[in-house]
Amino acid sequence: MSDGEIVVSGLTKRYKTLLAVDGLSFSVRPGRVTGFLGPNGAGKTTTLRMLLNLVTPTSGSATIGGSRYADLRDPLRTVGAVLEASSAHKGRTGINHLRVICAAAGLPKKRADEVLELVGLTPAAKRKFKGYSLGMRQRLGIAAAMLGDPRVLILDEPANGLDPEGIRWMRGLLQGLAREGRTVLVSSHLLSEMELLADDVVIIANGKLLRQGPMGEVVTSMTTTAHVRVRTPQADGLTAALSGLPGATITPRGDNTLLVTGVEAPAIGKAALAAGVELHELTPERPDLEGVFLELTAGKAGIR
C-alpha cells in the first residue's frame, strides 16, 4: 500500500466568469488522515471532483498512485469516494443501491452485505433510501466507498449530518483505515473535528493553496510570538516586575488577567516569584487550528 499517494499539480478550473481552482498543488501521503480545509466556495469540492474525473480541469493534473482516475483499471478497488450524502435513488433500498455498484464493478454481491455491516446499517438494508436519515445516508455513502476495499479514501464533508456518536464512530473508522496504511483525504469546514481527526492539513481559499503540512507544524508556523495568559490579584505589581524583561509586551485583559507576549511562561513565573507577586494562573496559549484557519482565510470567504 505504498503507492496510494495523491498528487495535485497546477490544477486549475475556470468556469465562465469564475476561477474556481487556481493553480493548486499539494500532495497527500498514505498512512495518514489529511484534512482538506477551506471556507465555503474555496474550491474544495471542485478539486475533489477533478481528482475523480467527474469535472474536467482547465489545466493541470491530479493523480492517485501515479495514474489519473480515468486511467485506473479497477477504480473502486483503488479509490473509495463519498461525495454527497444524497446520491442514491430515493425509491431503491440501501442494499440494492450497493448491489447495483457491485454489479457494475464486478464485485461479489456479498460485499454489499459486508460493508452494510461495517457501517452498522444492516437493520435498514431493505428500507428505501428516502426513509434514511441524513446520518444513515452518510453511512451508506461510506459503505459504498468501502465496497472495493480501496487503499485511498476521499470524503467530502463526511461529518455533515452525523450526530456526535456518529462523528466519533467515523473518526475511529478513518483513523483505523489510515493506520492500515491507506491514504485518507477528508474535506471539512468543521475545524474542531478536523483537529481531532487529521494528521496533516491542506488549507485553501479562493482556489489557491494557503498552507500544507503536518497539523502541528502548520499550527506552530503561525505562532510568531508566544502568548501567555497570567491571572493575578496584583496586576500592577506584576506589570512592574515584567517591564524589566526585554521584549515583554503586557496587555491588560481585565478581571485580573494580563496577556503577555515576548516572554516564555517560566521567565514570567521567575520574575513574579522574585517580586513576590501572587499568581493564580499561568497559561501558555497556543493558537489552535481554528485561529490559524481564521487568520489565513480572513476576508477570503464568501460569495465570489
Binding site: L52, N53, L54, L72, L83
Partner: peptide, 9 residues
C-alpha cells in the same frame, strides 16, 4: 456521481 466513479469510461 456514483455511476461514473464506478465506471470512469
Amino acid at each position: 456521481t456514483t455511476t461514473f466513479l464506478t465506471t470512469p469510461r
